[in-house]
Amino acid sequence: MDTANYESEIKDVIERNVDAYRGYEKAAEKVKDPNLESVFHQQASQRKQFAYELASTAHVYDDEPTVKQIQDGSFEGNLHRTWMDIKAAFSSDNDEKIVEECIRGEKSALDEYEDITSHGLPHELENKIHEQERTIRECISDLERIENRLH
């Protein structure tokens, strides 16, 4: 994969992490359970860190990524957060629906991670992607356990 192609795809993955960061922050605002709120704040922090790590490792920005570059996110992510707002507003079981949406978002992110690793990346970047991918898989498992508890 040439540098220009992987930079574009890495920027997409960075945006996905920003979307996850913002989505988890939104989810933390919406849930009733203080323990779940804490879980979502931790996940938000982790995903923001993922974005910075990828930007630094991939060197896809001229300098270190600025807060604005990292915090912009994507149009699709903004739509997903709006959908979370709508579902939460009409759902009688907010926490469970919000956890379901977080799982859906994480599975979508995982698809994007798996796709980019199939293209061949510089070694250091590929290692970082695989490390983050494992963490996302763990997060999905944790969220699925939480979801089962909420049923």
Rank of each mutant, 00 (worst) to 15 (best):
T3N: 08
A4H: 11
A4C: 02
N5G: 12
S8C: 09
S8K: 14
E9Y: 05
E9R: 12
K11I: 14
V13G: 04
V13C: 01
E15C: 10
E15I: 00
R16S: 12
D19T: 07
A20M: 11
Y21D: 05
Y21P: 00
K26N: 02
K30Y: 10
K30A: 03
V31A: 00
K32Q: 12
D33W: 08
D33Y: 08
D33F: 10
N35W: 15
L36H: 09
E37I: 03
E37G: 13
E37D: 07
S38F: 15
V39P: 01
V39W: 12
Q42G: 11
S45L: 11
Q46A: 15
Q46D: 14
R47E: 15
Q49A: 02
A51G: 07
L54T: 01
A55N: 05
V60Y: 05
Y61G: 03
D62P: 12
D62K: 13
P65Q: 03
T66R: 04
G73M: 04
S74I: 08
F75W: 01
F75Q: 02
L79D: 06
H80P: 13
W83T: 10
W83V: 10
M84Q: 06
I86F: 06
A89R: 13
F90I: 11
S92K: 12
S92T: 14
S92D: 13
D93K: 12
N94H: 11
D95K: 08
E96G: 06
E96M: 08
K97P: 04
V99T: 04
E100P: 06
I103V: 11
I103R: 07
R104Y: 14
E106S: 09
K107C: 00
S108D: 14
Y113G: 02
Y113H: 03
E114P: 04
I116H: 00
T117S: 01
T117P: 00
H119Y: 15
H119F: 15
E126W: 01
N127M: 09
K128R: 10
K128G: 05
H130S: 04
E131V: 03
Q132C: 04
R134S: 15
T135K: 13
R137S: 05
C139M: 13
D142I: 00
L143D: 01
L143I: 07
E144L: 07
R149E: 14
R149K: 11
L150I: 07
H151N: 08
H151T: 09
